[in-house]
């Protein structure tokens, strides 16, 4: 008998994070995604240290070297070189920093701004909030890439402008999500009770709201991260984002289009990397979503 009683107690006693992890780790795809995500993250952090060659060094004697698995390839250049003699492998490693790393930065930026605006919006009421909501709903219907293209069209092409553009483009969905989550929390009885205890706004926010919405925040952030990565790469590919000679993955594909016959590797591999990076984020996101749902059901 005791055995049956103990189990639910034990589960309840665990912290929410551990419960979440328990559910999360049951899905192999989610764990694989997380692993991949960590690899990409480390790559973005340390790529300049581990890349075997200078990714921008032009080597006149080694133009368009085929990948090392072909007969004319060299072991030192696993994916061969591009038409300016730069090592593709090193460029791809460093590219993680641009495509993936900058995506993370933009998402963090948008998250912080979103938290600020969303909190203000969520905690305020009345006409102001209604107008704000309408404007927000509008901005939400325009897809982030379109919004980013619009902003780049105004600011002009370039990686820095792309970063700002995507950050701004992601903002509405964060504000919207955070505002709704906070509004939902504020309606809960325990908030009212806490307020009656004499808690001020800040205490309500930090003690009750934050612990209750962080799960949603993480989910939102993963979704935004996959969007941001795809958008940065797409803008780079279109020549509106990172400019040559930058090693951003999308830009590498765009630059290599001319070489699609001679060096298909330089189109295929960067695309594969973008795909894997986005996939890893989406797998983690899906895993989190499922785990959160299961946890609440229990």
């Amino acid at each position: 008998m005791a055995k049956f009683r103990l189990l639910p107690d034990e589960q309840l006693a665990r912290s929410p994070v551990r419960q979440l992890w328990r559910e999360f780790s049951r899905h192999h795809s989610a764990v694989a995604g997380l692993l991949l995500f960590i690899i990409f993250f480390l790559l973005a952090l340390m790529s300049p240290l581990i890349s075997p060659h200078d990714p921008y060094l032009q080597n006149d004697t080694l133009l368009l070297l085929p990948p090392s698995w072909s007969e004319q390839g060299l072991v030192q250049y696993p994916f061969g070189t591009d038409d300016l003699g730069r090592d593709l492998f090193s460029r791809l490693l460093v590219g993680a920093r641009y495509t993936f790393g900058i995506a993370i930065i933009t998402v963090l930026g948008a998250l912080i701004m979103g938290l600020l605006l969303g909190t203000l919006a969520g905690m305020s009421k009345g006409v102001k909030s209604s107008i704000f909501n309408h404007v927000l709903d509008l901005a939400l219907t325009i897809p982030s890439l379109l919004l980013a293209i619009i902003i780049v069209a105004i600011l002009g092409p370039g990686l820095q402008n792309t970063t700002w553009a995507i950050m701004l483009a992601l903002l509405p969905q964060f504000v919207h999500g955070i505002r709704n989550a906070i509004a939902e929390q504020l309606n809960q009885d325990y908030v009212v009770a806490y307020r009656l205890d004499g808690a001020n706004n800040w205490q309500v926010f930090s003690r009750i709201i934050m612990p209750n919405i962080w799960e949603r925040l993480t989910l939102m952030a993963t979704m935004a991260l996959s969007t941001a990565t795809l958008d940065i790469a797409a803008l780079g590919f279109l020549g509106l984002g990172a400019q040559a000679p930058s090693a951003e993955w999308g830009a590498i594909i765009g630059d290599s289009l001319d070489l699609i016959y001679i060096a298909p590797v330089s189109v295929a591999v960067p695309g594969l990397l973008i795909f894997m990076a986005v996939l890893s984020v989406n797998l983690v996101g899906d895993g989190l979503r499922n785990a959160a749902k299961k946890r609440r059901e229990n």
Partner: peptide, 12 residues
């Protein structure tokens, strides 16, 4: 045939 590439080489 490829002025941009030529320019990149000359830049270096």
């Amino acid at each position: 045939p490829n002025a941009l590439k030529m320019a990149e080489l000359m830049q270096a």
